[in-house]
Design a protein around this nucleic acid. Structure first.
Lengths: 192, 192
DNA sequence: GCTATATGAATGAACG
DNA sequence: CGTTCATTCATATAGC
């Protein structure tokens, strides 16, 4: 079974995939920020806390997306997946022994593969990187085959209590001083 | 995490009443925005909703401010990961355009950042190198043969028509490139 | 439904 | 400095 959403050649939506991804990320960010801000707000303003209206998850507010028409499958395709054709080409190139595709080569490959589906140079780059790393890790048993081969394979998994947002953790304030009025207008818009 | 704000515990904080009011308003606005955004997020990403246990405890490898000091807890991490505070500083320094930090500058930065978490000069050096390299590679991402990188000034890439979302576009697409990451950093910053 | 695995993507560190 | 490696995170798919 293939991915339901495939490469390009489809739209009718007013947002591109990239835009959707940006939207999703920002939403996630704001959601995280909010949690902290509500706490902060309540600690600063004990007289009129937000808790009363702050019941987003359990509903009871007003169902926003319930009746939305286009809410069926908003396509959460964020991760590129090579098509079978692309994979074949990639594999064959990988096996050619040109272990290290240069930047030019990457570009060539990307250009070639773009005829078989949506792809970017970054995708190609990542694919080769991952391919190589994976091969190395899976088959370190060339020389030290028997005996002690299987030491730690999958062990660090236990510590993975990540909050899920680590990879975005690099930056600072979007604008030095985000105007309150601006934010307030947004807030009011959201309320209605 | 606990809020020890409340009365009397002013640790030399210097905020005027006006500033406090501004802060409160911004918090309130963000809280409202968030409420909606959490809903939106859940509708867009049914696989990992924020609803239940939403633990934004992201880079919790070790406590930055030493609330839980000492002990051998911190020895499990091999790769340095900048804390949110460190990242903010690094980003701001990077954006200052100071270009190539000298050894001396590196040392200064490292010294400053060491107050916000474990860091070495090598970390700082690597960070700047990677940051620059990454930025450079980001440009040829566009497959369009537009050529000539569009200079990033203050131009907003508002994509005009976007259904019922046009009112959001100031916040949803603040900058074409590093919008999300900035925002996320705030989220992390607020955690501490 | 849940967890387990595969794999694309992010990023710190190292190499030349 | 540019490129590459190693580790980890994120998520889509599969198996229980």
């Amino acid at each position: 079974m293939e991915k339901e959403i495939q490469n390009g050649a489809y739209n009718g939506r007013v947002m591109t995939e990239e835009q959707m991804e940006i939207l999703r990320k920002q939403i996630a960010v704001y959601a995280v920020i909010c949690e902290q801000l509500v706490l902060l707000h309540n600690s600063l303003s004990p007289f009129h806390p937000f808790s009363s209206g702050m019941r987003p998850m359990v509903g009871g507010y007003f169902d926003p997306m319930g009746a939305s028409p286009s809410s069926s499958r908003i396509s959460t395709r964020h991760r590129w997946t090579p098509t079978s054709t692309q994979l074949q080409i990639l594999e064959s190139i990988y096996e050619e022994g040109s272990g290290t595709p240069n930047r030019r080569r990457i570009r060539e490959i990307a250009t070639e593969l773009s005829e078989h589906g949506q792809i970017t140079e970054t995708n190609v780059y990542n694919w080769f990187q991952n391919r190589r790393a994976r091969s190395k890790r899976k088959q370190p048993q060339t020389t030290t085959e028997n005996g002690q081969a299987d030491d730690v394979t999958e062990e660090r998994r236990s510590c993975g209590d990540s909050g899920g947002l680590e990879s975005y953790e690099h930056i600072l304030f979007p604008t030095p001083d985000l105007g309150i009025e601006h934010l307030l207008s947004i807030g009011k818009f959201l309320e209605s």
